[in-house]
Amino acid sequence: MPPAGEISQFTAEQIATLQAKLEKRLGPEYISTRPGPGGGPTITYAEGWKIINLANEVFGFNGWCSSITNLTIDFIDAHDTTPPRYSVGTHCITRVTLRDGTYHEDVGYGTAENQKGKATALDKAKKEAVTDALKRTLRSFGNLLGNCLYDKQYTEQIKNIKLPPVSSAVAPDYYLF
């Protein structure tokens, strides 16, 4: 065992390999776009499930975990309609911890507008806040987990790359039904 404060060569190699992976940027297959609020500029983002899959690939399915450290309802508005409709805003602070104890935290926000039921509005806003917080926290680990999406020059370049269409003629062999 190395002296306190030093790391073994094996651990140093693991860290270097992990760092090299995290420095890579997301490929176009991981990036989505949508119109900005009010018809503003296009927003470039990565879907939550894709980032979670990447985190599993990079850290291993058992090499990281996430926890909600705070989930707060910021507002619940009942609209004066018959039947009433609801809008909700929530924020969430999430922590992602790696197997070695390293962790990052960040905040995410979620909204649900004009929903038919209060429970539905709360559910949607909370899920959105948790996913947003998880994605923001994972990006703290590096480009591969979404930090590259904050580089405007990169996102402009990646938008111009056209992906070949996915063929659905053959189902993958990993389906179990």
Score class of each variant (00 low, 15 high):
40 G>M: 12
134 L>H: 04
133 A>V: 05
39 G>A: 06
87 S>E: 04
136 R>Q: 11
148 C>T: 08
14 Q>D: 05
32 S>N: 13
132 D>H: 09
60 G>M: 04
27 G>W: 02
50 K>T: 11
68 I>V: 15
10 F>G: 15
9 Q>D: 06
170 V>Q: 06
21 K>H: 07
45 Y>D: 02
20 A>D: 14
99 R>M: 09
33 T>M: 03
62 N>L: 03
6 E>A: 05
44 T>S: 02
147 N>T: 00
17 T>S: 08
172 P>G: 07
158 I>D: 07
108 G>A: 02
106 D>F: 12
82 T>A: 04
82 T>C: 04
38 G>Y: 06
155 T>W: 04
80 D>L: 09
8 S>F: 00
164 P>D: 04
170 V>W: 00
114 N>K: 15
91 H>P: 00
95 R>Y: 02
165 P>G: 01
104 H>N: 00
34 R>C: 11
149 L>I: 02
71 L>A: 02
25 R>G: 05
131 T>A: 13
40 G>P: 13
90 T>R: 04
97 T>C: 04
50 K>W: 01
114 N>G: 05
104 H>F: 14
76 I>K: 08
164 P>Q: 07
85 R>H: 01
26 L>I: 15
167 S>Q: 08
15 I>E: 12
11 T>H: 14
62 N>R: 12
9 Q>T: 01
52 I>R: 15
2 P>M: 03
55 A>F: 08
166 V>H: 09
108 G>W: 06
148 C>F: 08
166 V>Q: 01
60 G>S: 06
39 G>L: 12
165 P>A: 02
114 N>S: 11
175 Y>H: 08
118 K>I: 10
24 K>Q: 15
132 D>R: 09
161 I>T: 04
155 T>G: 10
10 F>C: 11
47 E>K: 07
39 G>F: 05
100 D>C: 11
109 Y>D: 03
19 Q>H: 15
171 A>D: 04
151 D>K: 09
119 A>C: 10
107 V>W: 13
149 L>M: 09
159 K>L: 08
23 E>W: 10
74 D>I: 11
25 R>K: 15
53 N>L: 08
162 K>M: 11
67 S>D: 13
78 A>P: 13
103 Y>Q: 09
126 K>Q: 14
58 V>G: 00
32 S>E: 03
155 T>H: 07
125 A>R: 02
4 A>W: 14
79 H>G: 00
98 L>G: 13
139 R>G: 08
83 P>E: 10
157 Q>D: 11
24 K>F: 00
46 A>K: 11
126 K>P: 13
138 L>D: 03
55 A>V: 06
58 V>Y: 00
37 P>L: 08
129 A>D: 15
116 K>S: 13
47 E>D: 08
67 S>G: 15
160 N>Y: 00
136 R>N: 13
108 G>H: 07
67 S>T: 13
154 Y>F: 15
43 I>N: 04
18 L>V: 05
101 G>Y: 14
153 Q>G: 14
70 N>C: 05
121 A>F: 02
54 L>T: 09
152 K>E: 14
88 V>T: 09
100 D>A: 07
81 T>I: 13
140 S>N: 05
48 G>K: 11
19 Q>W: 11
146 G>P: 01
143 N>L: 14
143 N>P: 13
3 P>E: 12
69 T>M: 06
164 P>K: 14
18 L>K: 07
132 D>S: 13
85 R>G: 01
171 A>C: 00
